[in-house]
Design a protein around this nucleic acid. Structure first.
Lengths: 230, 230
DNA sequence: TCATGAAATGAGTGATTACTCACTTATTAT
DNA sequence: ATAATAAGTGAGTAATCACTCATTTCATGA
C-alpha cells in the first residue's frame, strides 16, 4: 500500500471516529503497526495472528501496540471499521456519478461498472478478506457490514434500478429488488469465479468477458426454444 | 445433525479415504468429538477453537482427541475433506439426473434447481462456513476446493450448457462458460443475499422470488429501450 | 536549555495453548 | 477364561498467548 494513501486514511480515521482528535498525528511506528497488522490478520486470521508477530514485523516493541490500541481486538476494529466506509463510499458514489452524467447504453455502462468494482476489490483484497472472515465471528463487524455496507449498497442500486425502469431502460415487469440482486450477483460472481477458477470461468481477455457478462445480464441466456412467460 | 447420518458419513469416510479400513467402527466418543468440533470450529474458527473446549463439549478427555486424530489440524482435515465430497457429489449428480429425466422448460427447471441447492447449503451451512474460511488459510483445503469441487461443478455445468445450446434451449451466441458462470452467479447471489440482507434482497415468498430470479436469468433485465447488440 | 508530556520499550505476568506419556479400562478373538 | 489389542484418560510438558508496568527516549514549545 502506498505511503501517501496510508497517511490520508489514518488522518481520515482520526477525524471520522474522533479517536485522538487532538493527537491526530500518526507516527511512523504506528503506521508500521497498521501495515503489519493488515498483512498478518489477512494471512493468519484474527485468532491465528499474534501480537508478538505483528510487533516483530512492524519492528516495534509489543508494548507499543497496546499503548495505542489497548487490546488486540481494538487494533482489529481500528483497521476494519474505517475500511468499511472506505470501500462503501466509493462503491456507492462513484457509479452513481458516472451513470448520471454519461448517457450511454446499459451494455456500455455495465461492463465499465464491473471493471471498476473489480479493480476496487483487487486493490483492497486483503482488507476485504479480513472483513469477510471476521464478520462471521465478530458481531460488531457483522452488524457494521450489514447495516452500513450491504444495506446501503443494495438500497442505492434499487433506487437506480427504479429510475431506469421508469425510463424504459430496464424491464418494469420484474421487481426492482430482483433486478438489483441480479446486477450485483453477476458482478460478484465474475469477481469470485475469476479468482477461484482462473482460466476456466473467465477465459478470454477481461474486457471481452465483461461484455459477454453484461450481455447475459441484459438479455438473458434463453435460446429461441424457450418462451418468455412472465 | 442426525445420528444415523453421522454413522453413514463416517463409515463412508473410512471407505473412501482408507483411513482405518480395519477399524472402521466409530465409537460413540469419536462421534461426539466430531460433532463438537464442527460446532466449535464453525463458531470460533480453526485458530480460535481450543482442543480443550472441544474435549469439554464432547465430554471426553483431551488426550482422546489426539489419540484418534493426532493433531488439531488432522481433526480439521478429517472433518473437511469428506464434507467436500459430500457436498460435491450431490451437487453434481442430482441436478443432472433431474434435468435429464424431466422434459420441462428451463423456467421450470431453474427455480427447482436453485431451491434444491439452497436447501443443501442451508442444511450444511456450518460445514460450508468452515470450508470457506479455512480454504483461505489452509493450502490443503484450498487446493481440494479448487481442484475437486469448483472445477468439477463448473465443468459439469458447462457440459450441460453446451448440450442445451445445441438443442436451442440456450443462446449459442454466448460462450458456454459465460452462460455457466451466469447460472451459478445468480444462484449463489440468491443464497448469499438472502442471508446477508434478509427481507431486502429477497422480499416475497421464496418460490416466487426464485421464479423471478430464473426469469431475469433467462430473459435478461433490459427494457425496451435497450437494443440487443451482440 | 530545559521542562513537559507523549512515544516507546524490556522485562516481566498468569493463563492458556497444543500435545505427550505412562497408565487403566473396554472390546474382541480364540 | 485369557491373551491381545484398541479405546480412553489424568497429569503433566514447554511454548506461546494477550497484556502490564516501571522506566527510558524523544519531540516540542517557551
Amino acid at each position: 500500500m502506498e505511503d501517501k494513501e496510508w497517511k490520508e486514511w489514518v488522518h481520515w480515521v482520526a477525524e471520522e471516529y474522533g479517536l485522538d482528535l487532538s493527537k491526530e498525528r500518526v507516527t511512523e511506528k504506528q503506521r508500521r503497526i497498521l501495515e503489519a497488522a493488515i498483512h498478518i490478520f489477512a494471512e493468519k486470521g484474527f485468532e491465528g495472528a499474534s501480537t508478538s508477530s505483528i510487533a516483530k514485523e512492524a519492528g516495534v516493541a509489543e508494548a507499543t501496540i497496546f499503548k495505542h490500541y489497548k487490546t488486540k481486538k481494538g487494533l482489529l476494529l481500528y483497521l476494519v471499521i474505517p475500511a468499511l466506509s472506505r470501500v462503501v463510499v466509493p462503491y456507492i458514489l462513484k457509479p452513481v456519478v458516472k451513470i448520471l452524467e454519461k448517457e450511454q447504453s446499459l451494455s456500455e455502462i455495465i461492463p465499465e461498472l464491473y471493471a471498476d468494482r473489480l479493480q476496487l476489490v483487487e486493490n483492497n483484497w486483503r482488507k476485504i478478506q479480513i472483513i469477510l472472515v471476521e464478520s462471521l465471528y465478530q458481531p460488531e463487524i457483522r452488524e457494521a457490514v450489514q447495516n452500513h455496507v450491504a444495506t446501503k449498497i443494495f438500497g442505492e442500486v434499487v433506487e437506480r434500478v427504479e429510475e431506469w425502469q421508469k425510463e424504459g431502460r430496464i424491464r418494469n415487469d420484474l421487481p426492482a429488488h430482483v433486478v438489483a440482486r441480479s446486477i450485483i450477483s453477476m458482478g460478484f460472481g465474475f469477481i469470485v469465479t475469476k479468482n477461484i477458477l482462473p482460466g476456466k470461468a473467465v477465459q478470454q481477455g477481461q474486457s471481452e468477458e465483461l461484455s459477454w457478462t453484461a450481455e447475459a445480464l441484459l438479455h438473458g441466456i434463453a435460446g429461441s426454444l424457450e418462451q418468455k412467460n412472465n
